[in-house]
Design a protein around this nucleic acid. Structure first.
Length: 235
DNA sequence: GTTGAGCGTT
């Protein structure tokens, strides 16, 4: 996704991962790149998302090639206001496969459970997404208005993010504007459902109609009884 | 249209 055109994540040996917390749910790797690129050579940017909805989970990983540059990014970008929120930038502590990480760099493969004890509780560090709290109706209608294929191109390398379409491109002005926009509700797909408002009159008329129907049936029944079609002996 | 502690991929 956030890689540079290849498939799969780029090799992560000898890279330094930063964890970027507190980003907006609509901040993309494209938004982050111009910021972080200023401090060094970026290998990859990855924004974990909910696998069902595709929504951002609100944080990102930025991988640098060199430690000092990563460190510089931490120093300069930690606490910075991005899209209206103060981001937190720090070295990642865990790798993609839960490896231990030191200064953003993998130092220990995957923590092996020693012995034969398979009884170790599964690492559920993160919220358990796939549970019943999804009533399989909500995530279905989430509009995916922000295209997801935007990552699939070698955008960063070409440094063409400055002149991209105004809608999603980065530019100082854009950045400012976006910051403002983020404070006001984003206007996206305006497929508003038609106002199915019932006027009070409608409501009354409906009630009347129903009553009339009932009365009619009642009358008919009485009439039939009265007319002796059904001889009902009352004792 | 919403959320807000936290550590990731084909």
């Amino acid at each position: 996704m956030s890689r540079f055109g290849r498939s799969g994540p780029p090799p992560i040996r000898d890279t330094y991962s930063l964890l970027v917390l507190n980003i907006t749910f609509r901040t993309t790797a494209d938004d982050l790149f111009p910021l972080f690129d200023k401090y060094g050579e970026i290998v990859d940017i990855y924004i974990p998302r909910d696998r069902r909805t595709g929504d951002s989970r609100g944080f990102a990983f930025v991988r640098y090639k060199y430690e000092d540059e990563a460190q510089k990014a931490v120093d300069r970008l930690d606490g910075r206001l991005v899209d209206g929120r103060e981001i937190m930038v720090q070295f990642a502590k865990y790798g993609p496969n839960a490896e231990r990480i030191n200064k953003g760099r993998i130092v220990e493969p995957v923590p092996r459970p020693r012995g034969r004890s398979r009884s170790r509780s599964p690492r559920r560090r993160y919220r358990d997404d796939y549970r019943d709290d999804y009533q399989d109706r909500d995530y279905r209608r989430r509009s995916r208005s922000r295209s997801r294929d935007r990552y699939a191109r070698d955008r960063y390398r070409d440094r063409d993010y400055r002149r991209r379409s105004p809608s999603r491109s980065y530019s100082p002005d854009d950045y400012k504007k976006r910051g403002r926009d983020s404070l006001s509700p984003a206007r996206r797909s305006r497929s508003r459902s038609r106002n199915r408002s019932y006027s009070p009159d409608d409501y009354k008329r409906r009630g009347r109609d129903r009553m009339n129907g009932l009365a009619l049936i009642l009358c008919l029944a009485m009439h039939l009884l009265d007319g002796g079609l059904f001889s009902v002996e009352v004792v």
